[in-house]
Simulated assay, not measured.
Amino acid sequence: MTHSIPTTMKAWRLSRLGGELTFDTVPVPEVRPGSILLKVEASTLMSYMKPYVEGKLPPYHAPDGAFTPGGNCVGVIRAVGRDVWQLRPGQRVLLSSLFRSAENVPDPAQLLIGVTSFGPDSEKIQADWPNGSLAEYTLLPASAVVPADGFDDMAATQLSAAARFVVPYGGLVRGRLAAGETLIVNGATGAYGSAAVLMALAMGAGRVVAAGRNASKLDTLTALGGKAVVPIVLSGNIQQDAKALREAAGGGAEIAFDMIGGAQEPNSTLAALNALRREGRLVLMGSLMVDLPVPYLQLMLNSIEIIGNFMHKTDAFRNVLALVRAGRLDLRAIMPKVFPLSELISAMDAAGAAGSLEQVVMQP
């Protein structure tokens, strides 16, 4: 079933990570079983898009051969393939770049569409679905998108902010955040850390201790979150910071949520760990670049739980949108900085410099 589809489109093509990046006219892909063709309305740009494209991020693995990069986006379905029963042309959806195989196996392979694969099984999926969202149209597995019913009146550039919240949502769910609990967010002045503070409030946290090193950013976050947010400027001293966090948490927190990005030392993570109550949980979702030395006896005697978490489950986008519909979460907290699709080069620089409550969005 098709709906107003041209034969060609504009798309960014990358020959390989570190290779040539060009803005080309290419054929619009045809639907196949299990797929949808999406007309892209707004594509969010990763803050690290420039070093990614330049091949400066060794852990990332792109498809063999030229591909269209780009992850999360908002769009309208223009066609669906066979074996797609409930999604329909004309429906607005969100793409979650995190795609997991639907095979009934113990450890389904996963992929970040348009970004990276994770090992041999993931590379097989990437070979089938190599292209991301930096194009006028993109072909996707049907299970990678989430209906955005009821959001037709919201600008796609604003709706795309849901992608900022879905990652911390996944970690807070994994950490079993319960209504009324106190949460420490380490890295609260970063993009996902700021979103974690606001998401925790939307999910019913009683108090959120926002920890970071930038006092002005913490003040901005506190103004948004209200009296339930307690800002703590970290010093880098583990004992001093742990004491300040514990006091701000009213004697200790039930959960510490670590969203620190690219840290070269573990001090703030250890301070958050040391500010937990007995039976507290530490959720690791950041990118600490060194090993985390943990105190074995302290963990055992206090029944502390450390939880590593990557991304989110498949229902996460639906639940985030439900919180928006209910008025618990305001996507307007994230300000879109909009660039035409053709201006990717300058947009990558802007994405790298964007503030924690800003998001660069490409619009075809």
Rank of each mutant, 00 (worst) to 15 (best):
P33H: 04
V294R: 04
L21W: 02
A263Y: 04
I5N: 11
I184F: 00
I307R: 05
D152I: 03
M362K: 03
K56M: 14
I345G: 04
V28C: 07
G19D: 14
A353H: 05
L321D: 08
Q298F: 13
I307V: 15
R277W: 00
L245W: 02
S122G: 05
L14C: 07
E254A: 15
G71N: 07
L140T: 11
L21V: 03
S356A: 10
A162K: 04
T116W: 05
R277I: 00
L288R: 04
T22R: 15
W129Q: 00
Q240P: 06
A191H: 08
D121F: 01
S122N: 03
L134S: 12
S4P: 01
R32W: 02
A148L: 03
S287P: 05
E20D: 14
G236P: 12
P89C: 07
S96D: 14
V53K: 02
G175H: 01
E305L: 10
N186I: 09
L198W: 09
L14V: 08
K56Q: 13
V115S: 08
L87K: 00
Q239R: 14
S216C: 12
D291Y: 00
S101Q: 06
A66K: 09
L95D: 12
E41A: 07
A202Q: 06
L297W: 11
N104D: 14
P336T: 08
E54H: 02
G355A: 10
G55P: 00
G180F: 11
L321W: 11
L297V: 13
T269V: 12
T222K: 08
T220M: 15
P108I: 02
V84P: 01
V229S: 02
F165L: 15
S122K: 01
P266M: 08
S4V: 00
N302A: 00
K217C: 06
G18H: 02
H312W: 13
S303Q: 13
A205Q: 07
G252V: 06
V320F: 01
V185K: 09
M9R: 06
E20R: 13
P33Y: 01
G193L: 07
R207S: 14
P59M: 06
R16E: 12
A333R: 00
V115M: 10
V320L: 06
H3K: 03
S194Y: 12
V40H: 03
L95I: 13
Q298N: 15
D258T: 07
A205L: 15
L94A: 10
L57R: 14
S342W: 02
L57Q: 13
F67G: 00
W129S: 04
R213E: 01
I5C: 04
T116G: 04
G55R: 03
N237Y: 04
L14D: 01
K243W: 15
S216I: 15
R213H: 11
R246C: 14
L218G: 02
A178D: 12
S346F: 03
G150R: 15
M49E: 13
K337T: 12
A333T: 14
K39S: 12
